[in-house]
Write a protein that binds this DNA or RNA. Sequence first.
DNA 1: TGAAATTTTACGTTGAAGCGTAATTCGTTT
DNA 2: AAACGAATTACGCTTCAACGTAAAATTTCA
Lengths: 81, 81
Amino acid sequence: MDLSARTAEQIGEAIRRVRKARGWTQGDISARTNLRVATISSLENGDAGTKLATLLAVMAALGLEFRLVERGGSVEIEDIF
Amino acid sequence: MDLSARTAEQIGEAIRRVRKARGWTQGDISARTNLRVATISSLENGDAGTKLATLLAVMAALGLEFRLVERGGSVEIEDIF
DNA sequence: TGAAATTTTACGTTGAAGCGTAATTCGTTT
DNA sequence: AAACGAATTACGCTTCAACGTAAAATTTCA
């Protein structure tokens, strides 16, 4: 399961994949974030106009965090220590 | 240099750190993204209202991409292979 | 396959991002 | 300390996310 993303579409796909892996519906995320189901839907469908606050709230609900990495870079050995 | 982030502030700090590591000014990012310097400033200062499109454009200019990872999880040995 | 659950879309409203432009503040260097 | 570049802030304007509510479309499963 590769969760790298450089576009809104890829971020949306990743979010959706994790949500389903948790066995949750958009309604579950909605309840945990006070965001509307329609907003979650929009995010998962790759709307680049989504606010950072919205994305962060959903990620928090899913227990996720970002890691900013060099493009195309895989995990470097230095990153481990 | 840890670039993990779960808040807009942390994302802004990470962006700023990478930008300075590249020896660039906000004006340089502005020129490469057609975003105003004020917008870059706002993003680096942790405005959670920033649009995803804005963040992605800046990250692309810096040659960065996201990785969505489990909270608190450091790099797992499985991630390498 | 048909009902129930889930997701997507719609419409009017409100608040704010990002724009152009420009002034002010901050930091660095000589 | 002065001066120059960089970053922040301001103001009016336009555009649109997210809201409440609700209907339509899609998926799931008995």
